[in-house]
Amino acid sequence: MEQNMNEKLDKGLNIKTRRLIAYIVLIFLTFLCLFWFYVLFINATRSNGELKKGFVPIPSTHLIENWKNLRAGILPVWQGMFNSLIVSTLCAVFSTYFSTMTAYAIHAYDFKLKKPIFTFILAIMMIPTQVTALGFVQLMTKMKMEDSLIPLIVPTIAAPVTFFYMKQYMESTLPLSIVEAARIDGSGELRTFNHIVLPLMKPAIAVQAIFTFVLNWNNYFIPALILHSDNKKTLPVLIAQLRSADFLKFDMGQVYIMIAFSIFPVIIVYLLLSKFIVQGVALGGVKG
């Protein structure tokens, strides 16, 4: 009996130490994740002179001044923000709408090529955009769509990953009896899709819209190859320009505020929607 008690005590201690270790590691990782953004925020509020003197962990008062200097500089930051917003929003809309439509086609209808088409879409899921970039850029040049936002938006209509998520979601939440009922009520197929299926898919659409938005907001490879004139560039391309201009030689306050300008909107949106997003990742990850 006593031995048993001892064992239990042992286990209890064991759990306490394990919990302590877990908290220490978690706090360290939290620090590792947030430290950079903290420094970024602090440094964005400091003037070039202050930055050169050394690092001080409290914010200064030059945030607005840095921002004004950046606006007066050569980088069209507002235009870049605007372009990024347009591209990411339209991508999110097109990608989720048409992926839901594609998933619905496979989910709700029976046709001869259904199975092979489904397998085919899964197979092309892993093709990286980089390996077709060469042909893509050549084609866009031929179609006179170089230096335009269109080639960044339209291709997201065919998004196999979003399609797969929608298909999974439909399997668990969209009973075909609803579609049957709509048919009996005389609703056309497109109407049924737009007015009955889409509203039922709202939670999945929200999750995928967020992901598509962020993916395109951050996208750098293809925009850098397609966009050439300054007023068409998206934020990541402007950041690259900042890097190659070797701004380090002059005003660091401007560099920090530019980085903050591209990073903080996403952080704020993320903090508002984080519950959605973390759940979405877990759902999307369990494949098969």
Partner: peptide
Amino acid sequence: KTVIYLPNLIMASAFAML
């Protein structure tokens, strides 16, 4: 969970510049 997932959504180019 919220904190450790955060860096995944940060613009890689801006993060690299940072």
